[in-house]
Design a protein around this nucleic acid. Structure first.
Length: 473
DNA sequence: ATGTCC
């Protein structure tokens, strides 16, 4: 059913599904491909039927079943004749990850690890319905929706340099807070500055391995260094925004006479009010998520400064894993403005792109790929292959291989915690069952997906970091 | 991911 194009590129032919406008392309190893469910391949084919799709419906090596679009899906649509779809972004709009580098050595931090994790767990609220330490006003909430991390910095969370080291400067243009429902506002207001649940985490790590000395130096990373990773998204606000606009776009499908193989692909033609309103609301959720990670970073710095008053915690970079953006790409030899949907995929721009901060522009964009609890995370660097093959995109991590329900039956939270403790990893969570659901064994290891994008020169391996202390919902 | 079904 699949055509092999290359060692790591497989094609879903146009015949796979009625109405496909372009083929599908999966960037994956043969070994990983064996583990991809047939439903995921069908979803890649379904996305290929959407109007205005450019080149291919793409999937990254960590692809798995999602709502409409696969998680690990990348799809770009031309401005003229294309569509925008909430399914191509996901419910957790701008779920993303940022990495802070310290000037501390693992051996110096080790004695304080318990204190640090306990304080982080206490000072950064987490859990499903977590409400924050913050009491933002309606006006401040609007500021977060409109100006994201830029507002957070002005409000005293972090420094202006942080913004340079965020995708989009931590603030997406075009946000429309008036397209955020009262319900989404009500959910979002008390949750600003909270971590959330599931695979979201706040982690203290040690740089364990450097793959590329020059790139590591540019990113300010060295072996034995302490880093901090923050993985979270737009909480209930983004979820509600997605839910609200899916309803609107389901009606738009009929109104504009779009034929879909799956209702979950609800979308609207670019330029219509429905499409513009979703885009504006999505941008508001993305900004909320950037503000959220910015606030959490400030509290993380406060905790470290308690024990290491002179420590520096500089932002390496902050990437979005779930977002749709307008970007220029080369299509058939000419530059075109495209709406690039990334769902469980990271932007991975190669050297020279103006979107990359000056400090990294010659090298390429830092690509941050979190591991699951207790497993390594990776830093890569966007490369030329991404611009040629994937509209400047790479994988985002490793997908689950066991359902939450099955995980709870198979593992006991307390035991998972014991095993991690014996491996020298201090873990705190709001509930033991969360630890069972997030046991390291329920996820595919990240290194396999990372190796695929490295081999394709989509993103080059720079560093591997291992967890030392984890705070989870 | 998510007030894990209004």
């Amino acid at each position: 059913m699949l055509n092999r194009i290359d060692d790591y590129i497989f094609e879903v032919p146009i015949g796979h599904q009625k109405g496909m406008r372009v083929p599908g392309r999966i960037f994956i190893s043969e070994r990983l491909l064996e583990q991809v469910e047939s439903g995921t391949l069908d979803q890649v084919a379904n996305v290929a039927t959407l109007p205005g799709i450019v080149n291919y419906s793409m999937a990254m090596p960590d692809a798995h079943l999602g709502y409409g679009f696969p998680i690990g899906g990348v799809a770009a649509f031309r401005e003229d004749g294309g569509v925008i779809s909430p399914g191509g972004v996901g419910f957790d709009i701008n779920c993303g990850v940022r990495m802070l580098r310290t000037d501390l050595l693992a051996e110096d931090v080790a004695p304080m690890m318990t204190n640090l994790v306990e304080d982080l767990f206490h000072d950064v609220p987490s859990g499903v319905g977590a409400k924050g330490r913050l009491r933002v006003s309606e006006h401040e909430l609007d500021e977060a929706f409109t100006r994201g991390a830029a507002w957070a910095v002005e409000a005293g969370f972090g420094v202006p340099e942080d913004l340079e080291h965020c995708e989009e400067g931590g603030r997406m243009e075009g946000a429309k807070p008036d397209q955020v429902s009262l319900k989404a506002r009500k959910r979002g207001r008390p949750q600003l500055g909270t971590l959330g649940s599931g695979n979201h985490f706040l982690e203290i790590q040690r740089v364990d391995e450097i793959f590329d000395d020059d790139l590591a130096k540019r990113f300010g990373l060295f072996r034995g260094q302490i880093t901090v990773m923050i993985h979270c998204g737009s909480r209930g606000a983004g979820h509600q925004i997605c839910t609200d606009h899916l309803q609107v776009l389901s009606r738009a499908v009929k109104k504009y006479g779009i034929e879909l193989p799956d209702k979950q692909l609800a979308c609207a033609p670019l330029g219509t009010p429905e499409a513009e309103n979703y885009f504006g609301a999505m941008a508001a959720a993305a900004n909320y998520a950037w503000a959220n990670r910015q606030i959490i970073s400030a509290w993380t710095r406060e905790v470290f400064e308690r024990y290491f008053p002179d420590a520096r915690l500089d932002l390496v970079y902050d990437v979005a894993h779930n977002v749709a953006k307008v970007e220029e790409h080369e299509v058939d030899g000419s530059r075109e403005r495209l709406y690039v949907h990334r769902k469980g995929a990271t932007r991975a721009f190669g050297p020279g792109r103006p979107e990359i901060p000056m400090a990294y522009r010659e090298a390429g964009q830092p690509v941050i790929i979190p591991g699951s609890m207790g497993t390594p995370s990776y830093v890569l660097c966007g490369s030329a292959g991404a611009m040629r093959l994937t509209f400047g995109s790479a994988c985002h991590g490793a997908g689950r291989i066991m359902s939450r329900t099955q995980a709870k039956k198979t593992y006991a939270g307390a035991e998972v915690k014991d095993v991690l403790t014996r491996r020298g990893i201090k873990v705190m969570a709001t509930h033991p069952k969360m630890l069972a659901e997030e046991a390291p064994e329920v996820y595919k290891p990240s290194f396999e997906v990372v190796d695929v994008v490295h081999h394709l020169d989509i993103a080059r391996k720079v560093a591997k970091v291992v967890p030392l202390g984890v705070s989870k919902g």
